Simulated assay, not measured.
Amino acid sequence: MAVLNIRVDDRVRDQLRELADDEGVTLSEFVRDRLMEAVVPVFEAEEEHGDQAAPDSMRLADRQVLSMLHRILARVLPEDANDDDGDHEYQLMRARILEEGFTGEYWYEVAGFRTELSKRDCRRVIDILQMFRILTYSVSHLEKEGTPVDEDLARVLEFQGFDFNDSLEGHMDDYVKFQMRDGDRWTELQPQIERTDGGNSHFPMLETYMRMLAEYRRIMDSRDRGSLGRHDYLLSAEELQQIRDARIHPSRRHESQD
């Protein structure tokens, strides 16, 4: 067993000894038990992907407001209420948790909430969708011009969704669905999502998309923004191939060339 030496003020040592005497144990046993209590939980609920962790504490003002809302809801719920808001007694229970300060039960207040999808990650989703929109338009334009790209190239340049088994990518997929909720936005990408099991890639895709996006940005940055016309945002077959090549991790690109 390891030995842990700590220095405390004489006053603290005397107080600890008094507490140990009250419990009928030695000072060493008392301190060891308190350390075990701090680092070895008896029960720890598993946190599911995306679940928002319950706060360790709340401001008194927040507790008062939330408690009042629960009590108001308890009064206005129908007598036979039994949906997501629960019934009269359920709302009063949640009010009591807040009023009594039962921090171990604060999870009731965040149940169903997810951790935030950061502004950066929201922006990434929009950038990825916009890139695939331009890729789709470019492939279609080349076909109309009589110079269609290879079918394999066109296929790998379609949006393949996100991995539902990854917490971040799954959250990003929910944001994609939110963006497409009315059916009027990103319409050119919706058939691609339908072809990929409803947007489930079954494989992590974010890193791949970020490499493609980096190459796409390099291509667009090389153009004269002041003179871009309606078709100047479209990509050539060579540029499409460059973005396709960016899908492959740099450490494996020599393998694909063999």
Rank of each mutant, 00 (worst) to 15 (best):
M1D: 05
R7N: 10
R7W: 05
R7D: 08
D9A: 12
V12P: 00
D14S: 13
E18D: 14
L19R: 15
G24P: 05
T26L: 00
L27E: 14
S28G: 08
E29Y: 03
R32C: 07
R34A: 11
E37A: 15
A38Y: 02
V40Q: 04
P41Q: 08
P41R: 06
E46F: 05
E47H: 12
E47M: 14
E47Y: 09
E47L: 15
G50F: 06
A53S: 14
A54Y: 05
S57H: 09
S57C: 04
R59I: 02
M68H: 13
L69F: 08
L69N: 09
R75F: 00
V76Y: 08
L92D: 03
M93W: 10
A95M: 03
L98R: 08
G104M: 13
E105N: 11
Y106N: 08
G112N: 05
G112K: 02
G112F: 03
K119F: 07
I126E: 15
I126W: 13
L135V: 05
L135G: 01
L135R: 04
S138K: 09
S138C: 11
L142M: 09
E143K: 12
G146M: 11
T147L: 03
T147D: 09
V149E: 12
Q160E: 07
F162G: 01
D163G: 00
D163S: 01
S167Q: 14
S167C: 07
L168F: 11
H171M: 14
M172T: 06
D173I: 04
V176H: 00
V176A: 01
Q179G: 05
T187F: 03
T187R: 13
L189N: 02
Q190D: 06
Q192W: 04
I193W: 00
E194C: 11
T196V: 03
D197F: 10
G198F: 06
N200G: 07
S201K: 02
H202Q: 07
H202G: 00
M205Y: 01
T208R: 11
R211F: 01
R211H: 00
M212D: 01
E215D: 11
E215K: 15
Y216V: 10
I219M: 13
I219S: 11
D221H: 09
S222T: 07
Y233T: 13
S236K: 09
L240Y: 03
Q241G: 08
Q242T: 08
Q242C: 11
I243N: 03
R247C: 04
R247E: 00
H249K: 07
P250Y: 03
S251G: 10
R253Q: 14
